[in-house]
């Protein structure tokens, strides 16, 4: 498994959803996985077992440098404390990647020029990184409605699964 250099700063939802799918180890091939202090506390409240997953090293870190841009965007996007701290850390670690399933946090990240992806992206990336087989990833995608608390419109999920199947046939044939 080849590690990428990217530093991931994670929001609570993807950590919780990946753990619900027993797939937190899919983050292990990133350079570092940082959980902001506020997010850590949030995950600890809702799904503490995720923080002791042996498949990936999660680094608990408090933001020390605060970006005025993040502060300015906070009321506009009604960002939660965890999302705010994650974005402050993203500004601190240049070229980091924000992991979030929250639309407003992603919009704020776009505004800041920060790359952002969510749980679905990480699951599908496992095919590219060869950390899961294609059938395994498709099985995980299908398990989202029953095994996780991630909300996604059923028709959209079906479309996503069909797109992935079609794409992998073309790319990995």
């Amino acid at each position: 498994m080849e590690k990428t250099r990217a530093v991931v700063i994670a929001d609570a939802e993807p950590i919780i959803h990946l753990d619900e799918l027993n797939s937190l180890d899919l983050l292990a091939d990133f350079g570092k996985v940082i959980i902001p202090e506020t997010v850590w506390n949030e995950v600890e409240r809702h799904r503490p077992q995720a923080l002791s997953c042996s498949g990936v090293k999660l680094i608990r870190q408090r933001a020390v440098h605060f970006s005025a841009q993040v502060d300015a965007l906070t009321p506009f996007y009604t960002l939660h404390a965890g999302e705010q701290e994650a974005l402050h850390l993203c500004c601190e670690f240049k070229n980091s990647l924000l992991l979030t399933d929250d639309t407003a946090a992603r919009l704020a990240a776009k505004n800041l020029g920060v790359a952002a992806h969510g749980t679905l992206g990480v699951l599908v990336r496992a095919i590219r990184q060869q950390t899961r087989s294609i059938p395994e990833v498709l099985k995980l995608l299908r398990a989202i409605p029953t095994q996780t608390t991630l909300h996604i419109r059923a028709a959209l999920l079906a479309e996503v699964i069909s797109d992935v199947e079609k794409n992998v046939k073309e790319v990995y044939k």
């Binding site: 996007y77 009604t78 639309t103 919009l107 969510g118 679905l120 992206g121 599908v124 990336r125 992998v168």
Partner: peptide, 27 residues
């Protein structure tokens, strides 16, 4: 404010971007 910042079309666009990144991204 919540509805404005969580519009369905934007959420869906992000999901599609995720799939594209997952399959073809570099990191």
């Amino acid at each position: 404010r919540y509805i404005e910042s969580h519009q369905q079309t934007i959420s869906e666009r992000f999901i599609r971007e995720d799939i594209d990144w997952g399959l073809h991204g570099k990191d």
